[in-house]
């Protein structure tokens, strides 16, 4: 995963990598997913963006009240 991508799109809060743009920011979520090497589509029923390759549709996004945490980033940066 590109570290530039990490710095630009996510911020570390209490050990969680949070998507800075928050909810319903589809163009940013698509842009990040396009560059991400860890993207795996979630179950179709759990997808919320019409564009398939979007962080909002990824198995590694963990929804939070105001956005999501990237679990792939957490695992990647721990290694």
């Amino acid at each position: 995963m590109e570290l530039n991508l990490v710095e630009h799109a996510f911020e570390l809060k209490d050990g969680c990598w949070i998507f800075k743009a928050g909810l319903a920011q589809y163009s940013q979520a698509r842009q990040v997913a396009k560059l991400c090497t860890c993207f795996i589509p979630d179950d179709e029923d759990e997808q919320v963006d019409d564009e398939p390759r979007s962080c909002y549709n990824c198995q590694y996004r963990r929804w939070m009240v105001a956005g999501f945490e990237c679990l792939a980033l957490r695992h990647f940066l721990q290694k």
Partner: peptide, 18 residues
């Protein structure tokens, strides 16, 4: 039918809670 439940740090769901 899929029913959305609360997303909160205290709930141990993996990526979504439905």
């Amino acid at each position: 039918t899929r029913h959305q439940l609360f997303v909160h740090p205290d709930i141990p769901y993996t990526s979504h809670n439905s």
